[in-house]
Amino acid sequence: MQQNAASGAGSAVVSLREVHKSFGPLKVLDGVTFDVARGEVLTIIGRSGSGKSTALRCIDRFETIDAGQIEVCGHKVHDPGLDLRALRQDVGIVFQSYNLFPHLTIEENIVLAPSSVKRIPKAQARKEARAVLAQVGLEDKLHHYPEQLSGGQQQRAAIARSLAMRPKVMLFDEVTSALDPELTGEVLKVIEALAQDGMTMVMVTHEMGFARSIADRVVFMHRGKVHESGTATILTAPTTPELAQFIGTGL
């Protein structure tokens, strides 16, 4: 395991230190440490069960950790007294299964949080909804219900919904895994554009080619640990046999 030169804890937007987490007898995170600097794109790869999704979910406190420290945009996530809603206003998360609210139109999905959490006036929130939808190329779907959209469109709408909260960091949890191959491209393109705009992002992904092209840094997780990490070059020149084998299987 090689520790990349962390760009100093001060400028890190997300920082995990020796994070441990078990589900019952199963140890899923076994001392995970990594940083994400402002504007950086970090991709986490690894087999299923390696702990990569759990690590991501811990950042937004969807899982509580047993030991270690997590700091996100100045919030101490490991602290039981954490202001959860403040954390989640700074962090956007997009899930594998989109999780749009089926009873609301796309516009209502997007407007919901800004208007009820940030108390932004409805008219302004709607205007911003249109802007973020344009950003993901769905401005014509404003008044559609989620079930009227394809999977790829739903996932783009879910990204727009997160963007509307103007998060400081975005988390993507295998956002293309539920999509047919021909639909993943449109979602990845949206994410790529976000990266170019300088959004700080952490993404768990199976798309190796995409990870290679977009990631500033790659973290390979194996058995609950950061087994290897570095720039995207580790994907073409892995130093550990486990990563070599993982890439070899094409997963």
Partner: peptide, 16 residues
């Protein structure tokens, strides 16, 4: 459950 999580991720309060 994912609906709860998505709403949580958007910082909605429990009542919301």
């Amino acid at each position: 459950r994912q609906q709860w999580e998505a709403a949580e991720g958007l910082a909605l309060s429990r009542t919301q």
